[in-house]
Design a protein around this nucleic acid. Structure first.
Lengths: 140, 140
DNA sequence: TTTTAAGATTGTAATCATTACAAATAAGAA
DNA sequence: TTCTTATTTGTAATGATTACAATCTTAAAA
């Protein structure tokens, strides 16, 4: 595996490591499901019984401020989180509700310059919605 | 003005008109600010004192189900709404929090086919974040 | 016209994600 | 060690959204 570990990533973004921060970053890196706070909490509490949900909120806020993660506001009810900060889009399946990464075509989507109609563009998010490959099978 | 009126739009989307529905669609059409439920309520209550916030929620849900409006989940706290269902992106200013429409370049962004990596794409949303033209002036 | 049934609107109460806050704990410097 | 600061934690508050039951409207049937 060529993925960097949690400790290295935290260091890269100038985030002082702590057991909680490491565990949360670790979880984000190992999950490809774009977890919600609750999902993280329910899993991590098993190996770290003193963990508080507030800590997860605080930690993710810190990660985002330092550029180590991004918040996805796909769902109007619950935010979910992604430690992959490289340019990519997200596909949300209306049947199974999974959130998948889409790297295809993304180069075309991102603005060539940081300026667009005179506005300064700092970041962008692209959400596709539909039926995923797997769920399409079930329908046929 | 070549914009269609609320009555015509409701008819087009098979939504039975009512004073409340007309007023809400009217408001959406006349505002270019992508209003939240609260903004709509606070304005409409003046001319329609019996209006309930629940009705606004119900009505927008109906509009969305029938394709007459879309919900923008730009903000993690509050959804906002847009009666413009033509393909366009949204720019959110981090300073003044305004949500602006961006039609530029959008053709490039939308998928050429309805298929992408085997997934069926039904809709897409594009959110840019940054500093808008006006707020940039204030900084300099 | 009156009756009736379905649809639309309303207000209140419940839900639930997120945040505020203050106390407890951990880490690091002196 | 002691002192100071950063981090974590639990509880309580906030606030958007939804559930639900009661009321009002509409329009068709009798």
């Amino acid at each position: 595996m060529n993925r960097k570990d949690a400790y290295t990533i935290l260091a890269e973004y100038n985030i002082k490591p702590s057991p909680q921060r490491m565990a949360i970053m670790e979880y984000l890196l190992n999950s490809c499901t774009h977890p919600t706070i609750d999902e993280m909490y329910n899993c991590l509490i098993k190996s770290m019984p003193t963990l508080s949900k507030t800590t997860i909120y605080n930690t993710l806020k810190l990660f985002i401020e330092n550029g180590a993660a991004q918040m996805l506001t796909i769902n109007e009810k619950t935010s979910c989180y992604d430690a992959d900060t490289s340019p990519h889009a997200h596909f949300i399946c209306e049947k199974c509700n999974k959130v998948l990464d889409l790297y295809y075509d993304v180069e075309d989507i991102f603005p060539k310059s940081e300026n667009m109609h005179g506005h300064l563009i700092k970041s962008m998010q692209v959400y596709y919605r539909g039926i995923c490959k797997e769920c399409k099978k079930d329908i046929n």
